[in-house]
Write a protein that binds this DNA or RNA. Structure first.
Lengths: 148, 148
DNA sequence: ATCACTTGAATAGCAAGCTATTCAAGTGAT
DNA sequence: ATCACTTGAATAGCTTGCTATTCAAGTGAT
């Protein structure tokens, strides 16, 4: 029952993700951003004023995690949350000017990080790599419809 | 300045790692194990009685993280820590019987999780996938010798 | 022998995840 | 109108990770 951690997809996936996160953390720190805000920001840069529910649906992130992330984002002046007038349960999320202005540099930082990490890969390898990861991710959703 | 998150290696790496972690968490929960203990356990199953320092050197994990993980492992009866007689600063880490006995089922769980996640990949794709991730990881170390 | 430096480990404090639970607002059936 | 159910969001409590700092034990030079 041998187990080589550097041959285990899951182990390697975790390790690689930490490396990416570490690099991106450093790159966006000067912007006053942290990695956890990225998914929400990407959605909001595209469509401002989404509800928390909609953000959760668009991203594979739990509701509680999103609530916490949004709370930090509000604290840090990236978003404002306001109650929907029609439905008092709904919170709409709006970007602040500051957050809107960070789009360019933040995306640039992410692209730089990706570029550095994949510097050793040929263009073909990069494409394969992305495709293979996407396949792992897609393998999930249909199988585990659970997700409560 | 478009940015498609499902084309971003870093974004995908994070997402994939969470999927693997989620699956493994469920599989090893019945064993009373959590994912964070896995790296240390693998090293100790191979070589019992390592020091914390040695564990940190063998794994790309920060000293503080390891200290916390070991504290949880001790609390949960997976390890015992004892002071080295030669050097009072050194803590040697020894597996308990319980932890030793978990090796088989834990490794089986990890292998099952890997298998399920890669079920959509051909053998060739699996090999490529592992190789491509390894390359990303290796791209790191030489570049950032800092790590302190 | 003492004092500065080094080194191994622990602690403080935070981010980003998760599960499970609670709270508040709406909705529907009686 | 009321009471049960649903639904959106918040909270509690935990793990895993990080950086920065502190503490304690050894080591070396004077």
């Amino acid at each position: 029952m041998a187990f080589a951690k550097d041959q285990s997809a899951g182990y390697l996936a975790n390790h690689m993700a930490r490396i990416f996160a570490h690099g991106l953390t450093a790159r966006i720190k000067p912007l006053g951003l942290t990695t956890g805000t990225f998914p929400a920001l990407l959605e909001l840069w595209d469509t401002d004023g989404l509800t928390q529910k909609q953000l959760v649906e668009r991203l594979d992130i739990e509701q509680a995690t999103m609530a916490n992330t949004l709370a930090r984002m509000e604290r840090d002046g990236l978003i404002v949350r306001e109650k929907d007038t029609n439905d008092g349960r709904v919170q709409r999320v709006w970007l602040t000017d500051r957050a809107r202005n960070l789009r360019g540099p933040a995306i640039a930082a992410a692209q730089e990080e990706n570029a550095v990490r994949l510097a050793g890969h040929t263009d073909d390898e990069k494409r394969q790599f992305i495709a293979l990861i996407q396949k792992v991710i897609k393998t999930k959703t249909p199988e585990e419809p659970g997700d409560t």
